[in-house]
Simulated scan of single mutants.
Amino acid sequence: MSIISLCSSHRTFALPAFLSRLSGGLSAAFVLLWLAACSRPLRERVTVYDGFPQTAELAGTPLPLDTAVFHYPFRIRVQADRAVVMDLHGTDHFFHAFSLPDFRHLASSGRRGDGPDDLISAENMRWTGDTLHVLDSGKSQVAHFVFAPSADSLLRVGTVSLDRQLLRALDFVSINDSTCLVPDYSGDSRFCVVNRDGRLLRRFGSIPTANEDALLHSRPALAQAWRSFIDYNPRNGVLAAATQLGEVLELWNLRDSTHTVLLGPGGEPQFQVRQGYGIPTDIMGFIDVQVADSAVYAIFQGTSFKEIGQSIQQGESLQDGGRYLYVFSLTGAPLRCYVLDRHVCGIAVNEKRRILWTTDVNSDEPVVEFRLDATD
């Protein structure tokens, strides 16, 4: 798939879907109003885009790290003057904290193991204020960490076990101090609302697919194919979900109950059902998404499974991650496509400083900084 085909013009139409991440100090009254709104129909539309009005190339600068060896640095989360990098396949620890802007190593935490304070498999992490929440899908728990007063270690200060009614949780976002959302992989709904004790409160939403046969006969496989990376910004009330397969980005504004489905040239996730599982057949899609204060940023791959198969047969290795940083307005208008000089997985955007921090699993220098244009 060429850069030209990935980044050009767009057009708009109308159709359906629904919801995931929140954090921060939303009032209890707002949460009650939002939960009530979940049961009402949303104002939904589908926007079909075939490119972006602006394209720019960006060269990154690898940041020298004074310590920490990563196996697969998958996510990076920034909070004030600290960044935490999650190592998806860490052998000793799952995440490493650094100071900003110098990226000096502060602490490694989230020890891998079977002990009561260990993690089996870290799937994602989120900041809520000064607390880092880590999802351990192996134990079906969310662990809470805070920095010690000396800032040289992360201390585990609590754990929440998730309701057994939830299928294996692979992502989560906080709504406020008492509620979070977990994607529903049963296919019966889009998301599960979970309280601070991990108890399932309700399910809501539906997958915005045109595949009626899968809706009728293969909902779990459909949910697997539609697995999405999610994010939420409490300052503007916008929630995003970007599909791991195909090219679909969903945006919800939780303040006015609008829902936009952005459908790109890659289309919705394509798959075949084998023994109840969804086997992907078309392309790898998005790999990370962030809702910032003024725009939505998403890393897109676009590699076909045919290309992957051919590379394996020929003994070639493909780069993990995506080279295309898509930028959309908070209402879903395509703004710009950045073509990066390397493949990256995780992203963290600082709009005020016009900085993009990324993780590059293909390099021995895995944290890379990009300077964004000031014209978005």
Rank of each mutant, 00 (worst) to 15 (best):
D256K: 10
T258W: 03
V248S: 12
L251M: 05
Y277R: 07
Q270E: 14
E250A: 13
E268P: 04
T260A: 12
T243L: 06
Y277W: 05
T258Y: 03
P269F: 05
F271N: 01
T258F: 02
Q244C: 06
D256P: 03
E247I: 05
L254K: 09
H259I: 03
G246N: 11
I279V: 11
G266Q: 11
G264Y: 05
G276M: 03
L262H: 04
A242F: 10
T260Y: 04
T260W: 05
G278A: 02
R274V: 09
G246K: 10
T243M: 06
G266S: 13
L262Q: 07
A242I: 10
G276F: 01
L254S: 15
L249F: 07
Y277N: 02
G266P: 11
L263N: 14
G276Q: 07
F271D: 01
V261Y: 03
L263G: 10
R274A: 07
A242H: 09
L254V: 15
S257H: 12
R274P: 01
S257M: 09
T243A: 15
L262V: 15
L249H: 07
G267R: 09
G276H: 03
R255M: 10
H259W: 08
T258D: 04
L263K: 14
L249K: 09
V261F: 03
T243H: 09
D256G: 06
T260K: 09
L245Y: 12
T258M: 04
P269G: 08
Q270D: 10
G246H: 07
G278K: 00
V248D: 08
T258V: 08
G246D: 10
Q272I: 02
I279Y: 04
E268A: 12
G276V: 01
E247R: 13
G266F: 11
R255Y: 06
